[in-house]
Amino acid sequence: RLHIEVEGTELMKKLVEEAKRRNLNVRAKVENGKWIIEID
């Protein structure tokens, strides 16, 4: 499991799109103003 903290929506969208393209499980949520992304 990969755990990433990202500031900025554009970067988050790119990460999520790339993960979906590779058929990975992606969860994204906002915590303290940062995107928290978990990829399995």
Rank of each mutant, 00 (worst) to 15 (best):
R1V: 14
R1L: 13
R1F: 14
R1E: 07
L2M: 08
L2F: 13
L2A: 06
H3K: 13
H3R: 15
H3W: 14
H3V: 15
I4V: 07
I4W: 11
I4Q: 04
E5Q: 09
E5G: 05
E5W: 13
E5R: 10
E5H: 09
E5M: 11
V6Q: 04
E7H: 13
E7Q: 11
E7Y: 14
E7L: 14
E7F: 14
E7P: 06
G8D: 15
G8L: 14
T9D: 14
T9G: 08
T9V: 13
E10A: 11
E10Q: 09
E10W: 13
E10L: 11
L11Y: 10
L11K: 08
L11P: 03
L11A: 13
L11G: 05
L11D: 08
L11H: 10
M12D: 01
M12T: 02
M12I: 07
M12Q: 02
M12S: 03
M12G: 03
M12H: 01
K13W: 13
K14E: 07
K14N: 05
K14Y: 10
K14V: 09
K14W: 14
L15T: 03
L15S: 01
L15I: 15
L15F: 09
L15D: 00
V16N: 02
V16D: 01
V16E: 03
V16M: 10
V16I: 11
E17V: 06
E17W: 12
E18P: 00
E18K: 07
E18A: 13
A19Y: 14
A19M: 15
A19Q: 02
A19D: 00
K20D: 02
K20Q: 08
K20S: 05
K20F: 10
R22N: 07
R22V: 05
R22W: 08
N23A: 06
N23I: 07
L24H: 02
L24P: 00
L24A: 02
L24N: 00
L24M: 07
N25H: 13
N25T: 11
N25E: 05
N25M: 12
N25Q: 10
V26W: 12
V26S: 01
R27D: 02
R27G: 01
A28S: 06
A28M: 12
A28E: 02
K29S: 11
K29W: 15
V30Y: 15
V30C: 15
V30M: 15
E31T: 06
E31P: 00
E31A: 10
E31W: 07
E31R: 11
E31C: 15
E31N: 06
N32P: 01
N32I: 02
N32E: 05
N32D: 08
N32H: 06
G33F: 03
G33Q: 03
G33Y: 02
G33K: 03
K34E: 03
K34P: 00
K34A: 05
K34Y: 08
W35R: 01
W35P: 01
W35T: 02
W35N: 01
I36V: 10
I36D: 01
I36P: 00
I36R: 03
I37R: 00
I37G: 00
E38L: 08
E38A: 06
E38Y: 12
E38T: 12
E38K: 06
I39M: 05
I39F: 06
I39S: 02
I39H: 01
